[in-house]
Nucleic acid binder design. Structure first.
Length: 899
RNA sequence: GGGCGAUUAGCUCAGUGGUAGAGCGUCUCGUUUACACCGAGAGGGUCGGAGGUUCGAAUCCUUCAUCGCCCACCA
């Protein structure tokens, strides 16, 4: 016996545990023999992470596809795992050390610190895996991987070494985005440009040999002037043309710097003269290279002014040495002001680069780093999307992908961290680099090179976390080993992710996948044929959820409150192919109510003895009601299938919602009530079996979206004996069921009941009052329909009687129902004036409709150019409207006669 | 500076050439073989503005307005 309210908290844990213990999600479980494969690799969440709303949406959508394909009998693998998240994880553990007053990572040393992180991972890492389970994710957990586990690390080494030997990975000294808090380089993608209100300082630089003449430069970064090695002006700029080739005397450091002509200087901007600091600005770096300027690095790794021997060489006064960059800025500005060389200060809005993890201003800094030649790797990855080998859904995202990939910059992959894949490069004392998968191989190579053994030192840096993520679609399947899984499931099918990850991850998987994986004809093979890009989840006001704003909705709280199914259904229903989802808890509550509604419908069916009948054949039902609901069910299942095939998740959810609530509950079950309590045993038996069959179909088609409640119902209604878990039950393929006669007849009854209800409510007929109904002018079919369904019409319209008759009752309330007029003689209750007003309102509306249709149908161009079926449809509508109009006019006349 | 997107009922959003929809909220009525996490009914929109294409436009095009996002080295 089902409880009155479904209790997700109690049911979900039990069911998930049973699924897992029963191996329900194992690769290939439940597949038909010889079935095709369907594989999704999960976007690996950070091992430090907690499930947020974005994960909930992302994994709900993946789970829907996985469960859908699994039920269709495919050999399904949903490959799970987590990401070691280099910076994030190292920060978490460092913070923990600080909180506990334990030694810092510097105190304990690299090996001990890494060991410490592994301990942390064993204890508290991967909480998100359990959270994914609470959401209902049906991953093959027996295959869970971690980007730092042995196999994946081997894959990383192999990829790095091969790319190095192919010349696609190289080391270079150039400006990088340096994070002076985390003390590491980061890639362009990890830099966030933030609009900031600042100032533009105008400094006067004295011209050498021309007493009293100055060249004014404008800068947003005064402190970098200590490293200036030139000033650039536009070659055509008349104001400064005579100064080109002359020299300036750089204040404070008394450095003699040239005025160079360079297109980079824009006469319209600032003063038209640009200070050039090649070691601290990306543009200036390029200008410096063009003019062979020295690169003077005035910052240390903390972005403080250097204070070692070089400081003196560069002429940096002692009082500036060791200052933080922002302190140095103040001091430089003060110096210029005092010296009378500060021309003016303007307010200025500029974009400042911030590190996405550290949230400090990033410093362009000159260092040696490792780079991937992304431009070369991007070429086949671009072509694969151009040819459609991999397609984005929605397609508009391809444009974003192309734009980035066609302008791709070298990818800086080295990080000055400890947690991650250490770069497999060893240095000989003379600086010669040996890149091999193991130290032994590096030694051997060095011995060959030098003709004798030499001492080697390994590069201390680790790789960008996204480097290992880029291998995820094949490394998780076993590569570089030639595993059966790799052969079977690569290429994978669909990748589901948010648009913010297209550059970080999707593009890089495309590049690496195509470089390392080849099909049987040795042609590069993409990692997946479809990339589904979903929206970002925001709060109900449309703001990005963030801890600092305090507007974070925790999916686990919602699961506790409303159940995982309700959350999943909400996210699915809102997953239209757009940019973002504004989530409100009211919506979740609404879909929680939906699960309760479904639950109660099943409970009602159970109370009325509806049980599965193995011999039931939906194609052979006889009762009109049953033929109708069988057809509705099949149509809904078909709509859901089509929606899921097209990744229109919201449409699938909408179809199920409407069918369960507005068709099955509102009408079928109500219509079934008189049958259940009636005397016709044959009809009763068929209706019971039909109801049970429909519930079975609902369970199946709703299972991908709401797996828990459907599995529970399926089990309680005897599903498990027949087919095992609902997880593995066959997806409904009931096309062609139902018939038009039944649809027409049930539709007629529904409209009749709705008509009566509407009139009753509008005329304020007390809900408890039973009134007689007369159907006037009814044809034979209408009379028969009334006869066949009299019981339930009486019941649902709250009537005393319902008969066909040509007798008119003066003063009856009336409405038009197809060819007939419905008369409801409600005697004293009728307010004739109100009734007349009601009818005239209807008439007016109808006349407006007819006018519109007339205009269309008398338009010759419309008749000539519109498709025949549209014209025909309009004709029918007009005929119908005219008939209704005549009936209404008649009704008003009757009323006038009565009054 | 370049690109993308949004603007539809009080709110949150579907719909993307052929009779304007849902959820929530509002109002009225209601315990009738499940469900008040319910049922019945009602009200509510010139689909951001202006042009255009079309027999027909919320839907396609142009333009304007407002809001948002992404990319970019402008001192």
């Amino acid at each position: 016996m089902l409880d009155k309210h479904y209790d997700p908290a109690a049911v979900e844990r039990r069911i998930y545990e049973a699924w897992e213990q029963g191996g329900a999600f194992k690769a290939g479980a439940g597949a038909k023999p010889g079935a095709d494969t369907f594989c999704i690799v999960i976007p690996p969440p950070n091992v430090t992470g907690n499930l947020h709303m974005g994960h909930a949406l992302n994994n709900t959508l993946q789970d829907i596809l996985i469960r859908f394909k699994r039920m269709q009998g495919l050999d399904v693998l949903w490959q799970p795992g987590t990401d070691h998240a280099g910076i994030a994880t190292q920060m978490v553990v460092e913070r923990q050390l600080a909180e506990r007053g334990e030694p810092t990572r510097w105190d304990m040393g690299r090996d001990a610190f890494i060991e410490r992180i592994w301990q942390w991972k064993a204890q508290s890492g991967g909480a998100i895996i359990n959270q994914l389970k609470r959401l209902g994710a049906s991953c093959d957990w027996s295959r869970e991987r971690f980007t730092m586990d042995e196999g994946l690390s081997a894959a990383v080494l192999k990829v790095f070494v091969q790319l190095y030997k192919e010349g696609l990975i190289y080391k270079d000294k150039r400006l990088v985005n340096w994070d002076p808090k985390l003390l590491t380089a980061i890639s362009d993608l990890e830099v966030q440009q933030v609009e900031t209100k600042g100032h533009l300082w105008h400094f006067r630089y004295p011209v050498e040999g021309q007493e009293g003449r100055y060249l004014t430069v404008a800068t947003t970064r005064p402190e970098t002037m200590l490293g200036d090695t030139a000033v650039a002006v536009h070659p055509e700029d008349e104001r400064y043309k005579d100064l080109i080739g002359k020299h300036l005397l750089l204040p404070i450091v008394n450095r003699r710097i040239p005025v160079v002509a360079d297109e980079h200087a824009d006469p319209e901007t600032g003063s038209g003269a640009v200070k050039i600091t090649p070691a601290h600005d990306f543009n200036d770096f390029e200008v410096g290279k063009r003019h062979g300027l020295p690169q003077i690095n005035v910052f240390d790794q903390y972005a403080r002014i250097i204070s070692d021997a070089r400081a003196g060489d560069f002429g940096i006064p002692v009082e500036f040495q060791g200052l933080d960059r922002f302190e140095a800025r103040k001091k430089v500005v003060a110096w210029f002001e005092e010296a009378g060389l500060l021309e003016k200060v303007d307010d200025h809005t500029l974009m400042l680069p911030y590190g996405d993890r550290s949230n400090v201003v990033i410093e362009p800094w000159l260092t040696d780093q490792w780079y991937v030649d992304a431009a070369t790797l991007a070429k086949p990855a671009i072509a694969a999307v151009e040819t459609g080998e991999t397609a984005f859904v929605p397609k508009a995202w391809e444009k974003t992908y192309f734009e980035w990939m066609r302008n791709i910059q070298p990818w800086c992959i080295s990080r000055q961290l400890w947690w991650g894949h250490q770069i497999p490069a060893w240095y000989a004392p003379d600086g010669h680099i040996f890149v091999e998968e193991t130290e032994a191989e590096a030694r051997a190579a060095a011995e060959v090179h030098f003709g004798k053994p030499v001492e080697l030192k390994r590069d201390p840096d680790v790789l960008d976390t996204w480097f290992s993520s880029a291998l995820w679609p094949f490394s998780t399947l076993g590569w570089p080993e030639e595993t059966p899984e790799l052969a079977r499931y690569y290429k994978t099918d669909v990748l589901i992710t948010g648009f913010d990850i297209i550059f970080f991850w999707v593009a890089r998987m495309m590049m690496f996948g195509m470089h390392f994986m080849k099909d049987e004809k040795n042609i590069p093979e993409v990692p997946f044929h479809t990339v589904y890009i979903h929206a970002l989840v925001r709060d109900e006001k449309g703001q990005k959820m963030s801890k600092s704003k305090g507007n974070v909705i925790d999916p686990l709280t919602l699961i506790d409150q409303y159940g995982a199914d309700a959350l999943r259904f909400t996210l699915t229903a809102m997953a239209a192919q757009g940019r973002d989802i504004k989530l409100s808890t009211g919506r979740v509550e609404g879909y929680r109510n939906f699960t309760t509604k479904l639950w109660n419908a099943v409970r009602f069916a159970e109370m009325n003895g509806c049980a599965r009948d193995a011999s039931f054949d939906p194609a052979k039902v006889e009762g009109t009601l049953n033929r109708w609901i069988v057809g509705e069910t099949a149509r809904t299942a078909d709509a859901v299938t089509q929606a899921l095939d097209a990744y229109r998740f919201n449409e699938a959810a909408g179809a199920i919602y409407r069918f369960v609530w507005n068709v099955f509950c509102d009408w079928f079950l109500e219509f079934a009530k008189p049958v259940f309590s009636g005397a016709d045993e044959a009809a009763q038996a068929e209706t019971r079996a039909t109801a049970a069959w429909v519930i079975d179909r609902i369970c199946r088609m709703a299972h991908p979206i709401m797996p828990f409640v459907t599995e529970e119902i399926w089990g309680l209604t005897g599903g498990t004996q027949a087919e095992g878990w609902l997880v593995h039950a066959a997806w409904p393929e009931d096309k062609g069921l139902g018939d038009k006669d039944a649809d027409a007849e049930i539709g007629w009854v529904i409209r009749l009941i709705e008509g009566v209800r509407s009139v009753r409510a509008e005329m304020n007929v007390p809900a408890g009052a039973k009134i007689p109904l007369t159907l006037k002018g009814a044809g034979a079919e209408a009379a028969a329909r009334l006869d066949r369904h009299r019981d339930l019409i009486l019941r649902l319209a709250r009537l005393e009687s319902a008969d066909v008759s040509e007798d008119d009752t003066a003063g009856a309330v009336r409405f038009v129902h197809d060819e007939a007029t419905v008369l409801l003689p409600i005697g004293d209750v009728v307010d004739l004036k109100a009734e007349r007003a009601r009818l005239e309102k209807d008439l007016k509306k109808l006349e407006g409709e007819i006018r519109g249709l007339d205009a269309k149908l008398s338009n010759e161009k419309f008749l000539a150019k519109a498709p025949e079926e549209v014209v025909e449809e309009n004709r029918e509508r007009k005929a119908e409207a005219e008939a209704r109009k005549a009936k209404l006019a008649d009704a008003i006349a009757q009323l006038a006669a009565a009054g």
